[in-house]
């Protein structure tokens, strides 16, 4: 089943969110509007708005109120992508030129800051201090996580715990909070909002682990970058950690540096695959997914719960 088909009952509301996103990124200055439109048209799965709306279905669902959270979270995600492309010096994203490639780094910084400001403007339309406290704390945590990621680059002696904490901050938190805030915006009971947070957290962890696996098993065409790019950039991900349990593989991996040749990288990727690290990583991703499903079981049975199940399964098990 295609992803969109899993929540087709939200189509009209998602279209409304899309329109609001267009409105939110409009500026008095046309060049800035074009840059933002360039980003919007790059698409993306709009997974955060989907989680917000589906979670809102567990309370008093009012799209006119919930849409503010959905728009704000997608804008925060967009702003962070614009800045991430500067950090990663990335030229392409989803088959399109990045803002920093089409213009330059400084332009990307200002565009990202503009979009972030718009997201907070939109979010303040929701008059709920608790929702703001949660979102603000999350944004700070995500930033601290990204700084940690830079600190941990090429640090091959890091622990599994360190990796898990990093991906929590990098990916899982924003998905968890999308679910939690959707519920809060719909005035769902606290217990339900907390469970949805947990569900989002587990799905986010599974999502990021899968992402880290795909970096090794995808082709350049599928990934839009050479396989093993994460490792080449010094990011020690789960497959690498598992592979380093093998002494021979570890010897090779710890020698990776920014200028390691493509041939050497290919050799290391093959070695990582031979250690069984990919299968071990998939197993861990699946364990998180199973935990997410278990949380869902504790929530009231409805159409949204079935959709969350399907979406979680899709993004946890996606091939690319």
């Amino acid at each position: 089943m295609k992803l969109k088909a899993m929540y087709s009952f939200l189509n009209a509301d998602l279209q409304l969110v899309e329109k609001e996103l267009e409105a939110a990124t409009q500026s008095d200055y046309s060049l800035l509007s074009s840059a933002a439109l360039h980003l919007l048209q790059a698409g993306g799965k709009r997974i955060r708005p989907v989680f917000v709306l589906l979670s809102g279905k567990f309370g008093e669902y009012d799209i006119q109120r919930i849409k503010h959270v959905a728009v704000a979270l997608e804008l925060i995600h967009m702003a962070s992508l614009v800045h991430d492309d500067v950090i990663d010096d990335a030229e392409m994203r989803r088959g399109r030129e990045t803002i920093k490639a089409k213009w330059d780094n400084r332009f990307a910084m200002y565009t990202g800051d503009y979009i972030f400001a718009r997201s907070l403007e939109w979010m303040t339309r929701l008059n709920n201090p608790l929702a703001h406290r949660i979102l603000a704390r999350t944004i700070v945590e995500v930033c601290r996580g990204e700084i940690e990621q830079i600190k941990d680059k090429y640090r091959f002696d890091q622990t599994l715990r360190c990796y898990l904490r990093r991906i929590k901050r990098k990916t899982a938190l924003l998905i968890a909070v999308s679910c939690q805030l959707g519920a809060i915006a719909a005035n769902a009971p606290k217990e339900v909002a907390d469970r949805l947070y947990l569900f989002g957290y587990y799905v986010g962890m599974s999502f990021q682990i899968t992402d880290d696996i795909l970096d090794f098993i995808g082709t350049q065409e599928q990934l839009g970058k050479p396989a093993g790019s994460d490792l080449l950039q010094g990011n020690v991900t789960l497959p690498v950690l598992f592979a380093m349990e093998n002494v021979h593989a570890k010897e090779k991996i710890v020698r990776v540096h920014p200028h390691t040749s493509a041939d050497e990288m290919n050799e290391i990727i093959t070695l990582i695959k031979q250690t069984g690290a990919i299968e071990q990583s998939y197993a861990m991703s699946d364990r998180y997914l199973q935990k997410a499903f278990a949380v869902l079981e504790t929530l009231p049975k409805n159409k949204a719960r079935s959709a969350l199940y399907e979406v979680a399964k899709y993004i946890g098990k996606r091939k690319f």
Binding site: V86, P129, H132, A136, R137, I139, V140, V142, I150
Partner: peptide, 27 residues
Amino acid sequence: LTVLAGDLYSGLYYDYLAKRSDLATIH
């Protein structure tokens, strides 16, 4: 780190005001 430091300080302004429930000033 310059990119991330700027992002962190922006986040801290939001966090500071959110803790005070001051949505008007955030806006």
